[in-house]
């Protein structure tokens, strides 16, 4: 059965993030006018990387269950990592853990165990900086991901397949990316094809949509195309999404439109909750 490979240190899995850093990401975000789209995305990516590290942390070690790649596309396609990790394509999660650009202190509201919320100071590592300029070469970014994950799958043929997660405000400037996305989804390991997830960050204040199973109700042609490009969720992720309260079906796709920050982080979290870690 596909998408069931156990994840361990000899058979890690990989996450590859494609982050739209084009000029339009500087615009206010539809779901929270006080924030720019690029700020919301940087926060979500940094929080997710932190979650992935913590998921692999065992005592004082971080076990290399995951490898992570980040590329940004704004004007051109470039490595999303800076500092000690600059230019790296896939980085073992233990190296990600040990090389944030800085660790900030932030407050986070948490469940107090009695139905309420308490504020807690948390350490917030930052790997990915805000950037927003230039055009939107999404097709080229997907082609870059294709090359990277194809090489990765050849190295780890028995692993749970990589997930490629694209976060964009949706309008490519280098042509239709559909064919590149279809080719990307043909790559895989013995355990299944690459999973391609898309998150559409919009300036519109239209109702958010997460894990839809059809194009019905999607705002525009760009959202519809990103939906079409997205993988159908494997059954385990359907279960995970359902447990988190999302209305999903077995045809649901890894696509979110205009998710607020909490839902965006939840979406990313569910998208990266692969098979059991051992």
């Amino acid at each position: 059965m596909p998408y069931t490979a156990e994840i361990n240190r000899s058979k890690p899995t990989a996450f590859f993030f494609l982050i739209d850093q084009s000029g339009s990401m500087d615009d206010p975000w539809g779901m929270d006018g006080t924030k720019r789209k690029c700020d919301a995305v940087a926060d979500a990516i940094n929080r997710l990387l932190s979650t992935l590290v913590i998921r692999c942390a065992k005592g004082e070690d971080v076990r290399d269950y995951f490898q992570v790649g980040v590329i940004g596309y704004g004007g051109s396609v470039k490595s999303g990592f800076k500092g000690a990790l600059a230019g790296r394509q896939f980085v073992p999660i233990s190296e990600v853990a040990d090389n944030p650009l800085r660790v900030e202190q932030r407050t986070r509201k948490e469940d107090d165990g009695a139905g309420g919320l308490v504020e807690r100071m948390v350490r917030f590592p930052v790997w990915f900086e805000v950037d927003a300029s230039g055009s939107t070469p999404m097709r080229e970014a997907i082609e870059t991901a294709h090359g990277a994950v194809k090489a990765w799958c050849e190295l780890y043929p028995l692993s749970y397949p990589p997930a490629v997660i694209n976060i964009s405000d949706g309008e490519p400037t280098d042509g239709d990316p559909s064919r590149a996305a279809a080719a990307l989804k043909e790559v895989g390991t013995n355990d299944g094809k690459v999973l391609f997830f898309n998150i559409h960050i919009s300036s519109s204040s239209k109702r958010p949509v997460e894990f839809p199973d059809s194009q019905m109700g999607l705002a525009d042609e760009f959202a519809q195309r990103l939906f079409e490009m997205s993988s159908v969720l494997p059954p385990r992720l359907v279960d995970e999404a359902r447990k988190e309260g999302f209305a999903v079906s077995e045809k649901s796709r890894g696509f979110a439109f205009n998710a607020d920050l909490r839902a965006l982080v939840q979406f990313l979290d569910i998208g990266t909750r692969t098979a059991e870690l051992r």
Binding site: V53, I54, A57, G59, A97, D98, R120, P125
Partner: peptide, 17 residues
């Protein structure tokens, strides 16, 4: 037993869980 060590950010965050 475990909280007296000097720990990296991720171990401290996870310790809180």
């Amino acid at each position: 037993e475990v909280g007296t060590k000097k720990l990296a950010w991720y171990a401290q965050e996870k310790l809180a869980q």
